[in-house]
């Protein structure tokens, strides 16, 4: 554990708190993509199956349970809550996320480090996480003015990915035999997807106006 990894995890946690806060406090999920949230739920389930048979640390196990719980809570609110579900902008959330799931599964079957059931599912979760933000980014473009909490949620998610890259650089330079090419390549692609959003987020923040993605 290093400071970049810890900061990354805490930023990830904070992003989920911000999103849950928006949904619970405003009783609205306007501008939030249910498809991205469902993809994250799939990512966490397939990656954290190892809760059942591998223990790394109490920290890891607790975080895994928290991430799983928050992902399912968010999906629950967006799909089933009697008030919140009516605020979901279904017509703006039209990305075909099933293609992302299918593509990630095919890639995981082709490129993995060990051809076992759990390893392929874990690799699938890495590929799917890399692209899971796409429905949300497309939805932001279609939403007019993006509220602060939604904008901050996506910004924090992007920060979390950036901090993970710093964590890998740190680990590579300090640990022996630390090498995880699948995770690195996927993570760099994932972070690059935020570049456009970051540009407009910082530009609007600098000019002190409401976030709009052209």
């Amino acid at each position: 554990m290093n400071v970049f990894r810890l900061a990354g995890d805490l930023t990830h946690l904070l992003s989920l708190v911000v999103l849950l806060l928006k949904i619970v406090a405003t009783k609205s999920c306007r501008g939030v993509s249910a498809k991205t949230q469902e993809l994250y739920a799939i990512v966490f389930v397939t990656r954290y199956l190892d809760l059942l048979f591998s223990f790394v640390s109490l920290y890891n196990s607790v975080m895994k349970v928290v991430f799983l719980g928050s992902a399912f809570s968010i999906v629950y609110f967006m799909r089933y809550h009697k008030v919140v579900r009516h605020t979901y902008d279904r017509e703006l959330d039209t990305f075909r996320s099933s293609f992302l799931v299918a593509g990630s599964m095919v890639l995981a079957l082709l490129i993995n480090s060990k051809y076992t059931f759990f390893e392929v599912l874990w690799t699938f979760s890495i590929y799917l996480e890399a692209v899971a933000i796409l429905p949300q980014l497309v939805m932001l473009q279609r939403t007019g003015n993006i509220d602060n909490l939604t904008g901050n949620y996506v910004f924090l998610l992007g920060m979390y990915r950036g901090l993970y890259i710093l964590n890998w650089i740190y680990r590579y330079s300090t640990e022996r035999r630390y090498w995880q090419m699948i995770v690195w390549v996927s993570g760099i692609i994932q972070t690059a997807l935020y570049a456009d959003f970051f540009y407009y987020y910082l530009k609007c923040w600098n000019e002190n106006r409401t976030l709009v993605i052209p």
Binding site: K114, R177, Q180, V183
Partner: peptide, 10 residues
């Protein structure tokens, strides 16, 4: 170098 078999990150 080989892929680490331990998944110790989140």
């Amino acid at each position: 170098n080989s892929q680490s078999s331990v998944h110790d990150e989140l």
